[in-house]
Design a protein around this nucleic acid. Structure first.
Lengths: 217, 217
DNA sequence: CTTCGTCAAGAGCAGTGCTCTCGAATGTGT
DNA sequence: ACACATTCGAGAGCACTGCTCTTGACGAAG
């Protein structure tokens, strides 16, 4: 039942865009709107559930894309594969992507759970670097003039999730992830319209430049 | 009159978030909602007006930040100044930033005018590179393995707006702009929550790395 | 003094999230 | 088999939204 609601809600999201209507979902289920409230205490809760699912599905796609690269030492190939998977999912589910990564819905404060669910995809990316470093494929590039406070922030993240990873690699990897997010959002939110037509190639080019910046062989 | 509506609408936008209510604006003006329709044929038109204004104000801020750097040969300083100005404006006007660069409002198709208004800020950035190149401060870094179709897209943009600029510089500058957008959006849309606390420094660090990637001295 | 255009008000339509109450169905325990 | 409890969905209703249409007041031209 809950799953049926979510499925129909996702369909509405894809069709209509961000403003999901509980009543419309209920109508599609042959129910009356108040019946939905048996299963979700509010519209925001339904959105939260969709967001959590979205992060999960995206994380799965990212991990699958990484796993598909047979040569595990091909860090650049793995990095590009994950980035492409993120973009592919975003293009296939623009409304859901906007829900996850777009402007926050006014009045809706994302619960703590969403922020941890959100970390799966970037974790997949950074883990590629950790993988490369522990297997010796990727060397510690040495210090990168990180400002002190940033150093502290990154150290915390590193100790939490990527024990042993040189901070410089974490910093560069984060930039790479942020740029992946930025490039996808830029395209999806219409900022590329009228400027770039070869979008696949443009995205790949950007991600390659990021791989260069990270220092991926 | 039109200006008063826009001013109050902006205030509501800042206070409530993206879902701007015409009736609330009218109420604040001591008018009835239908009176607004004398001045704006629809809510979307009002949003469009706000968007156009926003791009204009942001463009002004970017140009002013660039102009404030007295040493015109300090390309890196100029680049950072503009990026910081963009972020500063975004943090000061999050709802407006979301309107310009966030997820598109469902059912609302941005008119052509907005896309040209949007180009002012990136134009300011890229013009720094053009400036540096024409004055000899910045050398042509040579080809950057641009895919063919991207090459064609960028050539069109270059011939339109930045005559004489080497394509490689345009490509790198675009990446820099996209990353500026990405970093600001990432922070503003809550993706940094719980991870990075030193946000000023982190942003600056990213922009410096981008300046490195572009090759700014 | 009349006409004309501008302006705002008001009613009304269809839609929204959400709350509440009330019946019907579906078990479950004795 | 009966009584009880719980679950479910329907329906009405509240306050809100964007938007349309009609009506009436006001002031400036002719």
């Amino acid at each position: 039942m809950i799953n049926e609601i979510k499925t129909i809600a996702r369909r509405h999201l894809a069709a209509e865009g961000a403003n999901l209507s509980l009543r419309a979902v209920a109508r599609d289920m042959g129910m009356v709107s108040s019946a939905i409230y048996r299963y979700f205490p509010s519209r925001d809760e339904l959105l939260t559930a969709l967001i959590l699912d979205g992060y999960q599905v995206l994380g799965d796609a990212a991990e699958a894309a990484d796993a598909e690269v047979t040569d595990r030492t091909d860090l650049r190939g793995r990095w590009l594969a994950v980035c492409r998977a993120v973009r592919r999912w975003a293009l296939a589910h623009p409304a859901e992507y906007a829900l996850l990564f777009g402007s926050p819905v006014p009045g809706y404060a994302a619960p703590q759970e969403t922020t941890v669910a959100a970390s799966r995809t970037p974790t997949t990316l950074i883990r590629i670097l950790l993988d490369g470093f522990t297997t010796g494929v990727l060397a510690d590039p040495g210090p990168d003039e990180l400002p002190g406070p940033v150093h502290a922030d990154l150290a915390t993240v590193r100790d939490h999730l990527f024990a042993g990873l040189p901070e410089t690699l974490l910093a560069r990897g984060s930039i790479g992830w942020i740029h992946c997010f930025g490039a996808v959002s830029f395209e999806l939110f219409g900022q590329l319209d009228g400027l770039i037509t070869a979008r696949d190639e443009y995205f790949d080019h950007q991600m390659r430049r990021m791989a260069d910046l990270i220092g991926l062989p």
